[in-house]
Design a protein around this nucleic acid. Structure first.
Lengths: 205, 205
DNA sequence: GTCTATAGAAGGATAGAC
DNA sequence: GTCTATCCTTCTATAGAC
């Protein structure tokens, strides 16, 4: 593969990412992607056979990137409270830098759930539970976190972090009426969310 | 307007609702809507000039329905804790009966935020804050809920309720791997969410 | 590998008969 | 008010020259 191959292929991939994330699979046009990449429309098909192939390449890259972001929490050597603080800081921070990813992913997955099947085959509560039990046995007992409660808790944490981005369109519009700055809201949310969750757990003693 | 007019117009509207909610504006086809309604494609244009007009009619009806669901909390004569319990029970219940609405609305609003501008012109934190101050002055003080914190709190509550539906595609797929039933998860979430939020507030004293 | 030109299909919209 | 037929545009995809 020559240098110019790579360059063109990458330009296409980046342009496709921009357009697909912005307009979704159905709303995107191959011509629009070609224009963004500054190349001829035929080249899209030369490098990526069809619109479907191109979309799948983009989707899988983004989905993989997104799901990885949930992992590092389990690698850090921190107390459970600090892990919660760490998660919200890192995760909301990541989404601030990529604010359109949640809406894109959630929507495309709802449209076609089969897409994620292979990507999340190895995600399992049991695994999470065992890692947590190993790392934080005392805190789990203190907070009365059971294996049955874990999905509710984890999805609640994800909700608090991800939802403002999934609902960005409404929230930004709402905030306009109210003298609230969306970025400021997000910045403050890192601390608010962590405190909120930790308080909820502490009171569960 | 004759009886048959109303019937046809309604059949079109209902078919359009089904198709648009399922596939989104960009993914929907007029032919598909006509088939669902069991009528000729031309009739769509006869009753609703264009695809855009038809979509807007559907969108506004649904958005209005959805936003109204947040209101009755303020009408009930309950303690703040009971209002929180009431909200999650009613709201998650409503979404269980209309599980596709959140994803549809969030996506279409992100795609075109202008759509909601007129619908939420009268939504305002000040109004919420004043209603709450009137109804629950003691509890607000006890839980240290300030006017600045209110948006964070309200959006957190909305997140916990709405996000599982917005992320239905992923969650249902995830749950398949784990012997968790989505409906069962939702049923339990009503109580979990209320307790979680109330605990978080109680510990904020 | 990159371009021009165009095929071929699909979709939104309208004209006109009944 | 409802249907058939068709226009016109747009979009994906490919053929073929360079």
């Amino acid at each position: 593969m020559t240098d110019s191959d790579r360059q063109t292929e990458e330009k296409i991939f980046e342009a496709a990412t921009d357009v697909f994330v912005e307009k979704g699979m159905d709303g995107s046009r191959m011509q629009d992607i070609a224009n963004h990449a500054g190349i001829n429309k035929s080249l899209l098909h030369y490098y990526y056979r069809s619109k479907d192939h191109l979309f799948n390449a983009v989707f899988e890259k983004i989905a993989d990137e997104m799901f990885r972001k949930f992992a590092p929490v389990f690698d850090e050597n921190l107390s459970l409270d600090d892990k919660i603080r760490f998660f919200f800081r890192e995760h909301i921070g990541f989404l601030q830098r990529n604010p359109r990813l949640p809406a894109f992913l959630l929507n495309e997955i709802n449209r076609n759930p089969g897409r994620v099947k292979k990507l999340i085959r190895n995600v399992n509560v049991n695994k999470f539970w065992m890692m947590l039990m190993e790392q934080h046995p005392d805190e789990l007992a203190e907070y009365r976190i059971t294996k049955e409660l874990l999905p509710q808790l984890m999805i609640t944490i994800a909700s608090i972090s991800v939802f403002p981005f999934a609902a960005r369109g409404i929230l930004e519009t709402l905030f306009e009426n109210m003298d609230i700055d969306f970025d400021d809201f997000l910045e403050k949310r890192k601390e608010f969310a962590a405190t909120f969750v930790i308080n909820a757990l502490k009171n569960n003693k």
